[in-house]
Design a protein around this nucleic acid. Structure first.
Lengths: 173, 173
DNA sequence: TGATTCGTTCGGCTTGAACCGAACAGAGCG
DNA sequence: CGCTCTGTTCGGTTCAAGCCGAACGAATCA
């Protein structure tokens, strides 16, 4: 690797470290992902230890987290004995979709359900009269909002990045 | 407020507390937003202290954060003496847009710039020969991805929730 | 002008996250 | 069977965040 390439690589990885922090991951996660992003072959934990400088235990924990989130993949299958090897998911859009699916959608769903539950325990008693029902109105508002957001997220995570961009660009108000 | 309404309100507020945590805010932020969400009038800090049970200093700090993020609004202007009063932004879509604009877009922009900078320090020397340029290729890939994401976020934050939903639903692949 | 009320700021406590080193369990190899 | 290498787990340390109470400056009111 040329000197320039090494410098550039390091800059990008530092950027990724920072991004990781913004999105609620640790710096180590950003660096490990970055190293894997540039690696031409899958890397094992000892290799990651050597290239990142982090302790083995840290690498073990962080790779587990990154795998769960979907940023990296674990190839324990193919040859090389006992070694577990990791590769980066480089299709960033997949990662974004995963996050939306796993976290955002899930959160929206949970909250939406909770709101409907609260609303139900209200509608039965209150019934027809809408007096004193500021709460009921506010809860209804919130429920509708969450339903909207849920649907939007659902639709978005069904499209590729290019499709989404296309859908947005071609939309005429 | 009826007994039922009180219970329902509390349930929803607890949900918001939890949501706040998911999105990287504190529980106190969720509760304070929730109390303001249901309040019919703007509330001052002492009133929030009374209704949330948090210390005055906590309320002061949290309200500042919430104001900065755009989840609540500060009305120091109109009458009522020195009191600062807060109202919740109940149009959740505005909040989402703000977050995208303030945090996501900003992060994408910063990283994108950093990547282009790294790429520039590379292209000049490497030039035409693409040998040994795995790094260059990877960086180019990443730059394009970030450009795409940036544009998507930009387009999204220009639409209302209804428009976005419409755009997605009416899109034919 | 005191006295009170309001909002901010400061120092301290507690808790949880990030990271480390060491100990451990299993698989392959001599 | 030892020995080595791998990956996980466990305790410990450090540091930042959340929250509190107290102190403070500014404004209002008696």
């Amino acid at each position: 690797m040329s000197e320039d390439a090494e410098v550039a690589r390091e800059r990008v990885i530092e950027s990724l470290e920072q991004s990781a922090e913004v999105y609620g991951l640790s710096r180590s996660a950003g660096r490990i992902y970055g190293v894997l992003y540039f690696a031409t072959d899958p890397l094992s934990i000892p290799e990651l230890v050597e290239r990142t400088g982090y302790a083995k235990s840290t690498v073990s924990n962080v790779t587990r987290t990154l795998t769960r989130v979907g940023l990296i993949r674990r190839r324990s299958s193919d040859g090389g004995g006992r070694r577990v090897r990791f590769t980066a998911e480089r299709e960033v859009w997949f990662i974004v979709q995963d996050v939306f699916q796993q976290y955002v959608y899930r959160e929206l769903q949970t909250t939406h359900r909770e709101i409907r539950r609260a609303e139900r325990g209200l509608g039965d008693a209150g019934g027809a009269d809408d007096a004193g029902g500021v709460e009921a109105e506010r809860i209804r508002e919130l429920r509708e909002t969450y339903a909207d957001l849920r649907e939007i997220v659902e639709l978005v995570s069904d499209l590729s990045a290019a499709e989404l961009r296309d859908a947005l660009e071609s939309y005429e108000r």
